[in-house]
């Protein structure tokens, strides 16, 4: 009986550590962590997805390793140890990306190295992986990775459509053919512009701030609306 209850509890915990960071405790939109890469690499959807995948890899690996070493690392040197572990994985990712996806490496540039000081990666190591089991840390890494990836992808879609007027695929992921989906901007075969409603401001840093601010405002507005509804319901209930 006790065993069953324990297992139930463990399953709930696994589910929580995987699902919570995807929406409820989204690292970017709710926790406001990792804003630096989120603003910098969201000029195109492909760059954002690439960054998201590499981020997920680094976070999951460092989470698992930190969690498996949590009883060995003395408390005096936790932060330096974590930094070395994270920096190692980032360097591995850098070398592998440079070797196998040079276009992605060139696009992300210094922001790949800056994963080392990403608040989410170090934060999850300190706050979660150092206190939880390996499996939970693994799930937490994947969950946070997915949460971060969809968040920056959303920003990238908005910025790419508004900024360039098209969605371009195949420029960074060269294994798929080059496709340009015209949305706000249309060009004919000889590159003559037919119509162009794009606002190039959204490709500049200004656009990054505005889009991020607008998304956070929408999230806050939804939150306010929900709170209002809950209050209203409570009032109804009281009657």
């Amino acid at each position: 009986m006790k065993d069953l209850a324990y297992r139930e509890e463990a399953r709930a915990r696994h589910k929580e550590s995987f699902l919570a960071p995807i929406i409820k405790a989204n690292p970017l939109f709710v926790m406001l962590l990792g804003t630096c890469p989120a603003l910098a690499v969201t000029k195109s959807l492909e760059a954002a997805i690439g960054m998201g995948i590499l981020f997920t890899f680094v976070l999951t690996c460092s989470n698992v390793l930190v969690s498996s070493l949590r009883k060995i690392i003395p408390s005096e040197v936790t932060t330096p140890s974590y930094i070395v572990i994270i920096a190692t994985f980032v360097t591995l990712v850098k070398l592998l990306t440079n070797a196998f996806m040079p276009e992605l490496y060139a696009t992300l540039g210094v922001f790949l190295s800056l994963l080392v000081v990403n608040c989410i990666v170090l934060g999850r190591s300190e706050a979660f992986a150092s206190k939880n089991t390996i499996f939970d840390s693994f799930l937490d890494g994947i969950g946070n990775g997915i949460g971060f990836t969809w968040a920056i992808s959303l920003m990238a879609i908005i910025r790419e459509i508004l900024g360039t007027g098209m969605m371009t695929f195949g420029k960074i992921f060269t294994f798929i053919p080059l496709i340009k989906l015209p949305i706000l901007k249309m060009v004919d075969a000889s590159n003559e512009i037919i119509y162009d409603y794009s606002i190039s401001l959204f490709q500049t840093p200004v656009g990054a701030f505005l889009v991020f601010g607008a998304i956070l405002a929408v999230i806050a507005a939804i939150g306010n609306l929900k709170a209002k509804k809950a209050k209203y319901k409570q009032k109804e209930g009281n009657k």
Binding site: L32, V206, G207, A208, F209, L210, F212, G213, A214, L216, A217, V218, A220, A221, N224
Partner: peptide, 14 residues
């Protein structure tokens, strides 16, 4: 209300 705090700060930064 929705802009309070961080969103308005981001607009300022923009």
């Amino acid at each position: 209300k929705a802009l309070k705090g961080v969103p308005i700060a981001l607009f300022v930064a923009g």
